[in-house]
Design a protein around this nucleic acid. Structure first.
Lengths: 104, 104
DNA sequence: TTATTATATCCATTTATCTCGATATGTCAA
DNA sequence: TTGACATATCGAGATAAATGGATATAATAA
């Protein structure tokens, strides 16, 4: 767990929003994966387009932000067809909360 | 509590170290305030010079870092004579831990 | 195969951060 | 009042981050 990288990733309003939004994806985003006729467990993941719409920021910037969050291990990505679904990496987030409680 | 400003302030190895070091000042720094013949409660505060020595970074940079941490409400400063003593602002740190536990 | 859609990557410009040496300011001691 | 010391501020060059448009890649649909 790279704390500096994590703090940097969270040092941006939009990126922090993304993390918070993804805590309750069904509340903050439209239903996902309705294109598929077969059933897939998206595990709460949300596609890039939905995040762009919500954030109101260009697609290239959002894609870059998601990459930053993923590299910091704050998000997990899973591709299904044309879509990439991003969801929170609860493991790192829990470690981070614990670090805050313990060391900070 | 400005979360973005706080995350930015913590996004630097040395600044994060300072926050951690100041959790146990007597363990991480030499005794403070021995110059004074009268008694002052420094509340665990440490002077800039001691922090410079510990961090091995230039005085101007440390002073700037302390300013960044203070502006983010992570540190409190108190001047006594020639010296400025910095200590943690436990209130903000506790709020931040709570935010992490609740929202993140 | 081709057209279309979703996402990722590239490139460039602007803005912010890092870090230092030099200097200013504030405080005390002689 | 001067000198010495602790800290703060200034100015600058180097590096990194922010952001978007254009384009590439990947996957599907026609």
């Amino acid at each position: 767990m790279n704390k500096i990288e994590i703090f940097k990733a969270l040092s941006n309003e939009t990126r922090l929003n993304i993390i918070e939004w993804l805590k309750e994806p069904e509340k903050n985003f439209p239903p996902q994966g309705e294109h598929f006729d077969y059933s897939i467990d998206l595990k709460g993941g949300v596609c890039v387009g939905s995040i762009c719409d919500k954030a109101g920021i260009s697609q290239s910037t959002i894609s870059h932000y998601l990459d930053i969050l993923q590299k910091a291990d704050l998000l997990l990505a899973e591709r299904h067809g044309k879509w990439t679904y991003y969801r929170r990496n609860e493991e790192t987030l829990a470690e981070m909360a614990e670090y805050f409680n313990r060391e900070i």
